[in-house]
Amino acid sequence: MDFSREAAQSLSFTALCSVSECVQRQYHFINERKTWTEAQRYCREKYTDLATVDHMNDMNELKKSVNYGGVQFVWIGLQKTGRDEWQWSSGEAALYLNWATGQPEGRDDCAMMFNGTFEDLPCSDARHFICNNTNTGLIFVNQLKSWRDAQNYCRQNHIDLVSVRNQNESEQVEQLINIVVGTTNSPKSQVWINLFRVRDSWQWSDQSNSIFRYWDTGEPTNSGGGENCTAVNAQGKWFDVSCINQYSFVCHEDKLIVIRENLTWSEALRYCRQNHVDLVSVHSEEIQRRVMNVVKRASTAAVWLETVCYQNWAPGNGTSEEDCEDAVRSGAVQSGGDQRWISRPEHDKLNFICSRY
Rank of each mutant, 00 (worst) to 15 (best):
A7P: 07
S10Q: 07
L11I: 14
S12G: 08
S12K: 15
F13M: 10
C17D: 07
C17F: 04
S20Y: 09
E21M: 11
C22V: 13
Q24P: 07
I30M: 13
K34H: 12
K34R: 15
T37V: 07
A39Q: 04
R41H: 11
C43G: 12
D49K: 06
L50W: 01
T52Q: 04
V53I: 15
N57W: 00
D58P: 11
V66D: 06
V66S: 01
G69Q: 13
G70S: 06
V74E: 02
V74G: 02
G77A: 11
G82E: 04
W86S: 06
E92W: 03
E92C: 12
E105S: 09
E105R: 15
D109S: 07
M112P: 01
M113T: 14
G116S: 02
G116L: 08
G116E: 12
F118Y: 05
P122L: 05
P122T: 04
C123R: 13
S124Y: 07
N133F: 09
T134P: 10
T134Q: 11
T134Y: 08
T136L: 13
F140K: 02
V141P: 10
S146L: 15
Q151H: 10
N152H: 09
Y153S: 04
R155E: 15
Q156A: 12
I179M: 13
V180A: 00
V181M: 05
T183L: 08
T184E: 13
T184D: 06
T184I: 13
S186D: 06
P187G: 00
P187M: 01
K188V: 13
I193S: 03
I193A: 03
N194Y: 08
R197E: 07
R199S: 09
S201Q: 08
W204M: 06
N209L: 06
N209H: 14
F212A: 02
R213Y: 00
R213C: 03
Y214R: 12
T217N: 12
G225F: 10
T230C: 14
A231D: 01
Q235K: 11
W238Q: 03
F239S: 02
F239K: 15
C243V: 06
Y247C: 08
V250R: 02
V250P: 06
H252I: 09
I259F: 12
R260S: 08
N262V: 11
T264S: 08
W265S: 05
E267K: 15
A268T: 07
C272S: 05
L279H: 04
H283I: 13
Q288N: 15
M292I: 01
V294K: 14
R297E: 11
A298N: 04
S299Q: 12
A301F: 00
W304L: 01
T307V: 11
V308K: 14
G316W: 04
E321P: 03
E321S: 01
E322K: 09
E322Q: 14
D323V: 05
E325F: 02
D326W: 12
A327M: 14
S330I: 05
A332E: 02
G336P: 04
R340K: 10
R344V: 15
K349N: 10
